[in-house]
Design a binder for these strands. Sequence first.
DNA 1: TCACTTGTTGAATGATCGCTCAAGAAAGAA
DNA 2: TTCTTTCTTGAGCGATCATTCAACAAGTGA
Lengths: 203, 203
Amino acid sequence: MTETRRGRPRAFDRDAALAAATRMFWERGYEATSIGDLTEAMGIRPASLYAAFGDKKTLFREVVESYQRTEWADFVGRALDEEATLYRGLARALRAAAGIYTDPSHPAGCLVIRAATNVAPRDAEIEAYLRDIRNANVEAFAGRAREAVRRGELPDGTDPDAVAQLFAITLQGLSQRAGDGATASDLLPGVEMILAGWPGSRD
Amino acid sequence: MTETRRGRPRAFDRDAALAAATRMFWERGYEATSIGDLTEAMGIRPASLYAAFGDKKTLFREVVESYQRTEWADFVGRALDEEATLYRGLARALRAAAGIYTDPSHPAGCLVIRAATNVAPRDAEIEAYLRDIRNANVEAFAGRAREAVRRGELPDGTDPDAVAQLFAITLQGLSQRAGDGATASDLLPGVEMILAGWPGSRD
DNA sequence: TCACTTGTTGAATGATCGCTCAAGAAAGAA
DNA sequence: TTCTTTCTTGAGCGATCATTCAACAAGTGA
């Protein structure tokens, strides 16, 4: 029972505008993207942006939330969820990251990792917002690793936190290297070398 | 034969001011550090900064050059130069990075890796300046790895570029994790797991 | 002593920042 | 038609940005 909207209808596609904003933030980061950059990319004027999305910080949070639901970010969680063992999930995620982070059809690397690294004090909450997401992801990796140790997928005494940090270090490093122009074929052999150190079974 | 300086002498210690500027840029990055932030940290006024260091970009380049000569950045090259084998140099550098990047006595991570990642188009040359340094370092790693393969330190068929990317991915990932608040004891076990995959001799 | 050189001071430059507002336009409701 | 609601437009807000300038201060050289 959706009521008919009163008042003048929006003249632009909200989802398309959000996608354009996502691309800008992904490419330049939060602070380096100005409202002027956004309105130009979205094809609207400032007052329309503020009416439809709130202020810049609110828009950015909505961008991040929608980004995390896309395949460009969700591939990690899906790999860990869908594969039967931790090694398979982790290996699939890291190999996929080498491809996705360097895919030329969109900005390099991961938006959550890259978009708010150098930030003035006035935007410290945005920096913390992304950092909290990243650290929560590391904690989720550690939980998955503890489960794997319990299941006997890893040798006794293997440190689940070490596995989680290995994973986080590699993912964040891949994102950085992609931002520096590395290609998938540059990164994949490095990923394979890292996977070679895996302590347990590869099944 | 240093001539005596004519004119009014400088009222501040240029090296100390440069160190203060380094700290600011290291902590916040290039764009998020304003001239006002710098003059406050350096204890001087804008006109003195411009007289002594040129404009913001020139100051930043001098900061980066002096930073690279410090132990906080030079430890990588020294590890690779001083150790007899590539593995030893690489292992020493990565273990040291886990400690140095998280050392609470200075800002987290590496200035060259972190200080210009989200940058507006007007400062694209600064972004490129640091990226070129990083990519030149990767190329230097690859050269060192080619030499190691030639020397027989690594199994036949080992890809020197893969070794270089493994090294770069890990270093840049460590810098990122340190920026997110990870400690040395968080990161070291992850480093050890990565080193465990090394294909050749550990000597 | 006086010219010359260099550094410091405080104010001010134009540009850009995120954001807002008054006026008008386009829809449904009465 | 007229009222109400919502959106768009274009102009403009104060704040902050990097940078500069004229006036003054503190040294050296003659």
